[in-house]
Design a binder for these strands. Structure first.
Length: 508
RNA sequence: GGCGGUGUAGCUCAGAUGGUUAGAGCAUGCGGCUCAUAUCCGCAGUGUCCGGGGUUCAAUUCCCUGCACCGCCA
């Protein structure tokens, strides 16, 4: 394998309780990873946890343990969830790991040698729960604009990164690569931000100690972004395994929420420029979920626990819903009603029922075998051509993270198949002893096999079940998209027959 | 305050270098089939395409302006 693909999620703050937002980004990355593997890529998929900072330090104090102990305890909340959600990450990084600290120190030293780091003084308002600094102007009636709690006034010595120096180079990067930031609306935001000129960035703090000390002056702790973002190069072996690093870097895509766009699209590339490392190819910022029409917040108590959704509706159903319901990149609303509606409409009625009726007919009319077509007629040609075209469209959309459009194409195929069955009425062909029934069921079988592959990145488990129901002995993990998207006659499949509903309707 | 976005059927949205009856899904009503998970298929709709003005033979689509909502920045 010589084609590689490297995709990341942000590293999640270890102190957070994982919610639908964390799940969303991670599933999105998993979908692309699985899709790229199908296409024959050697995929590196990195996620992890950000474990430094004042909040962890304070929480540890409260629990009477060391910050590292606390982190060790908390990290399972994420790793367990990724297992429950069927996340196929190939790497997991924690910022407390030695390999990471080494890279952060190296990056700092390099920048220092370049003259990109200097000692200055930092004065601002700091909100502890949000771990964010605000200027006077940003405060809302003297309170933190995010959480409306009272911030602390801080004035301290701090190291600064000379980001201002990189304004022009970033501008050039943006002009040369219009898809550096996706979707377009986010690109525009970043471009206008950079155009306004970049200010130097405070990259150290003396107000807490849980973090990576500045190499030249240990009382300073390297501050969040200079530490956290670095994980993306640590995770693929920077300084440790140069071959691996060269193999995967530059990263194909950093998937993030829109709230951390600036850090990824502006700070991170400028850090890399200072280090003399290529910037990533794409940064994709997605939107936010509201819950039952309301903003998700701890105080409202409406934070959605992904485990509960999975328990209530199923992993694949949840994964599917997130990307079928809303264009990837836009905001969306999660509601009980909406997910049930999707499951019943798209999965049970359209797709599940199509699968059921198809395998039953193959069992009943062809004794569970797929025969070679002998005669064409009706809309046979149309179906095959449509599938071919829609598969191409699907691939085009997947390439640009337009998951919703990709899924739209899949459901277009499903709709065509339901109509095809209706118009060709295999039960009638069977009764009349028309050999074209072989052709019709051959087309349905092939189309369905292809559809299950197209849905595999979104619903890995259910797709395998369907593949098996279609008599296939191999799993999607051993299959190549380009081979599998063809219509072919299978000669070594097991007998196909009626199966229990794969997506039962949810009543009530 | 600066920059950008959005406003189209009951709901969610698509759309047209300006040109015959403006589309899809869902929801609603009626009809059909029986292979299928009371599933599927067909038919039927309804729209001041945000308001106002302009350009044009012709604008919902272009321009200006107003209103509403949203995002980024200060």
């Amino acid at each position: 394998m010589n084609k590689t693909y490297y995709i990341t999620t942000p590293i999640y703050y270890i102190n957070d309780v994982p919610h639908i937002g964390h799940a969303y980004t991670t599933i999105a990355a998993d979908i692309m990873s699985r899709y790229k593997r199908l296409c024959g890529y050697d995929v590196f998929f990195l996620t992890g946890t950000d474990e430094h900072g004042q909040k962890v330090e304070k929480a540890a104090e409260q629990h009477g343990v060391s910050p590292k102990e606390l982190a060790d305890r908390m990290v399972h909340r994420f790793t367990d969830l990724w297992q429950a959600l069927n996340i196929s990450n190939t790497g997991f990084i924690r910022t407390t790991e030695e390999r990471h600290k080494k890279v952060v120190r190296h990056m700092f030293e390099k920048a220092y040698e370049n003259g990109d780091i200097y000692l200055g003084e930092y004065e601002d308002w700091y909100c502890v729960p949000c771990e964010s600094y605000f200027t006077d102007l940003q405060l809302k009636d003297g309170l933190c604009p995010d959480c409306l709690r009272k911030p602390e006034k801080l004035k301290e010595e701090s190291f600064f990164f000379r980001m201002s120096k990189y304004t022009d180079r970033l501008m050039r990067l943006l002009e040369e690569k219009k898809d550096f930031v996706m979707p377009e609306i986010r690109y525009n935001e970043v471009a206008s931000f950079v155009k306004g000129g970049l200010r130097d960035l405070s990259v150290s703090r003396t107000s807490f100690s849980w973090g990576i000390p500045v190499p030249v002056q240990k009382k300073h702790i390297i501050y969040v972004w200079f530490d956290a973002l670095t994980n993306y190069i640590t995770g693929v072996g920077f300084l440790e395994d140069q071959d691996k690093f060269n193999r995967y870097w530059p990263c194909d895509a950093h998937l993030i929420g829109k709230d951390i766009l600036r850090f990824h699209a502006v700070y991170w590339p400028s850090f890399l420029m200072s280090l003399g490392v290529e910037p990533p190819k794409h940064v994709f910022a997605h939107g936010w979920w509201t819950i039952e029409g309301q903003k998700m917040s701890k105080s409202l108590g409406n934070v959605v626990d992904p485990y509960e959704i999975v328990k209530a509706y199923g992993v694949d159903e949840f994964r599917f819903f997130l990307f079928r319901e809303v264009p990837f990149g836009s905001d969306g609303d999660f509601s009980r009603h909406a997910i049930i509606h999707r499951i019943n409409g798209d999965l049970a009625n359209d797709f599940g029922n199509l699968t059921s009726r198809s395998v039953t007919m193959i069992g009943k009319f062809l004794q569970g075998k797929i025969e070679r077509p002998e005669k064409k007629g009706g809309t046979d040609e149309y179906v095959e051509e449509s599938v071919r075209k829609l598969v191409d469209d699907y691939q085009r959309e997947m390439e640009v993270f337009a998951y919703h459009k990709a899924l739209h194409n899949v459901f277009e195929i499903i709709s065509i198949l339901n109509k095809y069955i209706d118009s060709e009425a295999p039960w009638k062909l069977s009764k009349e002893g028309d050999v074209r029934i072989k052709t019709v069921l051959y087309n349905i079988w092939n189309s369905l096999r292809i559809v299950s592959m197209l849905l595999y990145p979104f619903m890995p488990q259910k797709s395998e079940v369907i593949r098996k129901a279609l008599g296939m002995g191999t799993s999607f993990q051993e299959v190549l998209f380009d081979n599998e998207k063809q219509f072919y006659h299978p000669d070594d499949i097991s007998r196909i027959d009626k199966i229990a509903p794969i997506f039962p309707r949810i009543e009530g």
